[in-house]
């Protein structure tokens, strides 16, 4: 009996001290971990917009996130809510019904910097809504401005890959032409499907307009060698291609379909449909949101 007690006590001690140490480490690392994750996302967005490593961001360059919520209101039915940044660090929840008509604007307490904090924002949206309504987070896109002029958009999207979901980001310029694709998270086979992260695949999407994207297919032809040189910056440097020459080759091939990766047609197709869906949905939604903002005469930040 005495032994059991002794064993129990010592095991409990081990457990409690382990839990205490873990708690301490957790609270210490929580802050920096979140900061790093945020910074990483920021870096992806910046490099997609063309201000990556080493390239200075111009003055007055601002990126605003816009969060989308699906609101189930027992009285008004299903609504779509967008949290948009307003001038002077104000924010508002713009509600739009399924037919695309605006259904009211609610000012939020959140400041601009709170827009990146998803947990905080979720709770703020919830308190702003009527008590029996629910809001589920549905996605984010980013709007970039330079000196008050629209510069481009960055969209988040997911698609079913070969094994698991592929999370990606697509950047568009002001005319909704693709300027870049980044694979944020994927678990494709190394050496095969994992090549979707490579420049020679991702950069094939650059320059595709909305109409081109809609008709885009994946072909199993080999990638033309001049196009390959133009797609990968390191190869272009080796081949001694001048920037305007690269531009010329890319322009020549811009109407081409996507050349599938060898041995990974499914992954290539997954990324292509992912880009297509993300962009086409965004173009529809953004048009609706813009007209709603105009009709409600909102002073939005971008």
């Amino acid at each position: 009996m005495k032994e059991i007690l002794k064993i129990t006590v010592s095991l409990t001690c081990v457990c409690i001290s382990a839990a205490l140490i873990l708690g301490a480490v957790y609270t210490q690392t929580f802050e920096p971990r979140q900061r790093i994750e945020k910074k990483e996302k920021q870096e992806i967005i910046n490099s997609l917009l063309g201000f990556g490593h080493g390239k200075e961001r111009p003055k007055d360059f601002e990126v605003y996130p816009v969060n989308r919520y699906v609101i189930e209101d027992p009285e008004a039915g299903t609504l779509i809510g967008y949290v948009v940044p307003l001038k002077e660090s104000q924010t508002a929840l713009v509600r739009i019904d399924l037919a695309g008509k605006p259904a009211g604007v609610i000012p939020l307490k959140a400041k601009h910097e709170d827009l990146l904090d998803k947990l905080l924002l979720n709770s703020m949206v919830k308190t702003a809504l009527p008590k029996n309504a629910t809001a589920t987070f549905a996605g984010t896109f980013y709007v970039a401005d330079i000196q008050g002029k629209r510069y481009g958009y960055v969209l988040e999207g997911t698609t079913q890959g070969f094994k698991t979901f592929i999370n990606m980001m697509v950047s568009l310029d002001a005319k909704l032409t693709v300027t870049g694709v980044a694979i944020v998270k994927s678990e494709e086979d190394p050496g095969l499907g994992d090549e979707i992260k490579q420049d020679f695949f991702k950069n094939q999407f650059v320059g595709k307009t909305l109409e081109m994207l809609a008709a885009l297919k994946v072909v199993k032809d080999p990638l033309p060698s001049d196009y390959l040189d133009a797609l990968v910056p390191a190869r272009a440097k080796k081949a001694g291609l001048a920037p305007d020459k690269i531009e010329e080759i890319r322009k020549k091939h811009v109407k081409d379909d996507i050349y599938a990766l060898t041995g990974a047609t499914i992954s290539s197709r997954a990324v292509t449909t992912g880009v297509q869906n993300t962009v086409s949905k965004f173009s529809k939604r953004f048009g609706i949101l813009n007209s709603a903002i105009e009709r409600k005469n909102l002073q939005i930040a971008f």
């Binding site: 457990c15 140490i21 873990l22 480490v25 690392t29 920096p32 971990r33 994750e37």
Partner: peptide
């Protein structure tokens, strides 16, 4: 096992930083 799990959890939280 508990001791190992403790240190693993620590490194698991420190590594991403």
């Amino acid at each position: 096992v508990l001791i190992i799990a403790l240190w693993v959890s620590v490194i698991d939280m420190v590594l991403p930083v």
